[in-house]
Amino acid sequence: MKIVVCIKQVPDTTEIKINPVTGTLIREGVPSIMNPDDKGGLEMALRLKDKYGAEVTVITMGPPQADLVLREALAMGADKAILLTDRKFAGADTLATSNALAGAIRTLKWDLIIAGRQAIDGDTAQVGPQIAEHLDVPQISYVADLEWDNNRFVVKKETEEGYQRLAVAGPCLLTVLASGCKARYMNVRGIVEAYQKPVEIWGADRIEVDEEKLGLKGSPTRVAKAFTKGLKQAGEVFEVDAEEAVGIIISKLKEKFII
């Protein structure tokens, strides 16, 4: 079985602070981590590898320093790592990103692609599903559990109401949730070996995609405005009948000098 896991290096948003004047993220000194949903996805792939044997390739698109997150994946047990890095990829929105990743994956042999549901720095949850569309393969999103049974991937898909159990044959793509499984720690020997294994560096000329579809040129998304959401006090909840509620509302509005 050959599995490709898409991972992303993200700033640790639990440690991020916002500049109160400009309203932008202060990125200096914020550690970079493997996106949690992607780490969950890598763990699921490694569990399939442990149980049935598989070759796990991790791929990311990013600046040269994204090498670190790939080495972390190698130290956890991934077999191969590919870094898509090229100025031509810069300024990519989700569409251009998924085009680049799909273009790279198209040149590989694989049975399953795993992507995290969404990245904590963007929260779009678009890249995984878009890759599946570009490659024209079935996809299941919000996967919390993954098993291999009778040549099919059997997954537990989370929904708002509960979950669905679905089976899908490869080749296919799954987007997974970090909560699905606790990721293993890197292993000491794995860390030593991760620095002895190569990370393949691929530029735009190495993948099968029209350059017009990459980077800023291939990104239809335009950011209109960025702002910091103001803080609001928690409201008060009254569980009373309608007549009494009217009285409370009027007195509250008067209290605030609105009426």
Binding site: M186, N187, V188, R189, I191, V192
Partner: peptide, 27 residues
């Protein structure tokens, strides 16, 4: 033991992690 912390500076040919004493000190 699962993480390989008990053999950090030992070469891999004897089952160690193949690390060094700096890593051992950090651990």
């Amino acid at each position: 033991a699962e993480l390989g912390i008990f053999g950090i500076p030992l070469p891999t040919e004897y089952g160690g992690a193949g690390g060094d004493n700096i890593m051992y000190s950090i651990a």
